[in-house]
């Protein structure tokens, strides 16, 4: 049996967890078994809808105390769910929650962990999972040799397969556990598309000359319902906030579309964005290394090209 952990924030299932659910269900199909889910905390979304991602049963611990995350408490509860359901594959979306909990569970359950998985397991000879390594510059096929295996699936790496179906929701009873971590505040960046989950990302580099010119990036992003990102020097000189820094030492992202404006495409930048499905580069230097990694490009001055792109998108969307 496969068990998927469904991650939630403020009562809503995180988008990445739908991918993880579908991953768990498709892995279960390969293995000739079924996939169930575990949800911690109080959720307002309709959990029976996880059936559409191939989940047959959802175990919930609807305790409001669990809305505050504590890696130790979550580890204990998920381990109990693994034991109770007899799961031998445990799937996570590779979110910050998974990064805190999955390694602990690996120890607790003596279960080999593959974090950053990008494909379904190969079960033709043992149990091998492909993961991203060298910050997106390569893949490693990891053989997991333990009875229970834990897989944390990278965001946007895997295509959801929707099916007909509805999951049954059952309460999972556990002894309450006290937390050693007190959450004293949560700061959400509001009104923006979260970078890690975005389908489209518009990113700016030092070629934009200064923060006063970022309107080009944010306007195009707004029209495309995209998140905004930047190169490392741009964050370092505080033109943009740190959380927008993508690359080898920033966030690694894999959106459907990545539009890079005035970014040279240094190897460390490419490392964090080269898993994007389509890459568009706007750069005035035809020799910029980014063009080698791009699918589409314009050699030209961003200050002339981007306003025309904005006009074209407006026209396409029927905005005057």
């Amino acid at each position: 049996m496969n068990l998927v952990f469904i991650d939630q924030a403020e009562g809503h299932i995180k988008k990445a967890s739908f991918e993880a659910a579908s991953y768990a269900a498709q892995t279960a199909a390969l293995m000739g078994t079924t996939a169930e889910a575990i949800v911690l905390g109080t959720v307002s979304d309709d959990l029976t809808a996880l059936g559409r991602y191939g989940i047959t049963k959802v175990h919930t611990v609807a305790d409001a105390n669990l809305n505050e995350f504590d890696a130790q408490v979550y580890t204990q509860l998920i381990a109990e769910a693994v034991k109770a359901t007899g799961a031998d594959v445990l799937v996570f979306a590779n979110t910050t929650t998974a990064k805190a909990v999955a390694p602990r569970l690996s120890v607790k359950l003596k279960a080999g962990l593959v974090s950053g998985a990008v494909a379904l397991p190969d079960i033709s000879n043992g149990f091998t999972v492909k993961k991203s390594v060298f910050s997106g510059k390569a893949f490693a096929n990891i053989a997991v040799t333990t009875a229970i295996r834990i897989i944390a699936v990278n965001l946007n790496a895997f295509t959801i397969q929707e099916v007909e179906g509805s999951a049954t929701v059952v309460p999972f009873t556990v002894q309450p556990i006290s937390s050693k971590v007190k959450v004293s505040g949560v700061d959400k960046i509001t009104g923006e598309v979260p970078l890690g989950e975005a389908d489209i990302v518009v990113s700016g580099g030092r070629g934009l000359k200064g923060p006063e010119n970022w309107g080009l990036v944010t306007e195009l992003a707004g029209l495309l319902n995209a998140a905004t990102a930047c190169s490392r020097p741009v964050a370092d000189i505080h033109w943009r906030p740190h959380h927008e820094h993508v690359g080898q030492t920033g966030l690694a992202i894999a959106p459907n579309l990545y539009i890079a404006i005035g970014i040279s495409g240094a190897i460390q930048h490419l490392a964090g964005v080269n898993r994007s499905k389509t890459i568009v580069v706007i750069n005035k230097d035809p020799e910029a290394p980014f063009f080698k990694a791009a699918d589409y490009g314009i050699v030209g001055d961003a200050f002339e090209v981007v306003p025309k792109m904005i006009d074209a998108v407006k026209k396409m969307k029927g905005i005057a």
Partner: peptide
Amino acid sequence: LTRVASFDLPPAKAGVKLVSAEHPEEL
């Protein structure tokens, strides 16, 4: 608990399709 069985490199990109700076609407 785990072992690297093998590594792969990502497939090479097909090459960039360039659009003229005069016609961003084409992009």
